[in-house]
């Protein structure tokens, strides 16, 4: 048995394995498959609770992963955001000096969550410019086509 606490390096090595098999497109195919088939928990929560579904989903996962983060839900403004001060996944990979993280490791979040949230009418934005320090910012917003929402958030307003 491989410990669930060793999963992150297994995940990173898996992306390298797939890239070796068929290039970057093979890695992206897997992220799309994973999102479409297995992220039903987030999908169901957002379908049932709206933006609060994001709050409920990440409350569980980020606490179980012992992340260092700030999370905010403002239902009046239709915005949910996560400011990740230290991502437990990337942080773990950076801390493990004898392995090198997959070069586009952090991009999996973008594909996984965008594919779940955008068909439900939400815009998912992630700023990965500081991901080499295990920091990022995520904003989920109701689609601007919803007339009640008048302000589009600039992700750079919330530096992690």
């Amino acid at each position: 048995m491989i410990s669930c606490t060793d999963f992150i390096p297994a995940y990173s090595e898996f992306f390298k394995f797939l890239e070796k098999k068929g290039g970057k497109k093979e890695v992206i195919k897997f992220w799309e498959y994973l999102s479409d088939k297995y992220f039903t928990n987030l999908k169901n929560l957002v379908e049932k609770h709206g933006l609060k579904g994001c709050w409920l989903y990440w409350s569980k996962t980020l606490n179980e992963e012992a992340a260092d983060f700030k999370m905010e839900l403002d239902e009046n403004r239709g915005v949910f955001k996560i400011i990740m001060f230290k991502c437990p996944s990337k942080g773990r990979l950076l801390k493990t000096k004898h392995i090198k993280p997959y070069k586009d490791y952090c991009k999996h979040c973008d594909i996984l969550y965008t594919r779940v949230l955008e068909p439900l009418g939400y815009k998912y934005k992630i700023d990965l410019s500081r991901c080499e320090k295990a920091r990022c910012t995520v904003i989920v917003q109701k689609n601007l086509r919803d007339k009640k929402i008048t302000h589009s958030y600039n992700i750079k307003q919330f530096p992690g």
Binding site: T61, E64, L73, E75
Partner: peptide, 18 residues
Amino acid sequence: KLVMRRKATDNVYFHPDF
């Protein structure tokens, strides 16, 4: 409006869904 702030030391790293 809900706000949650957690530090890494607030939780034990254990995510069995992995």
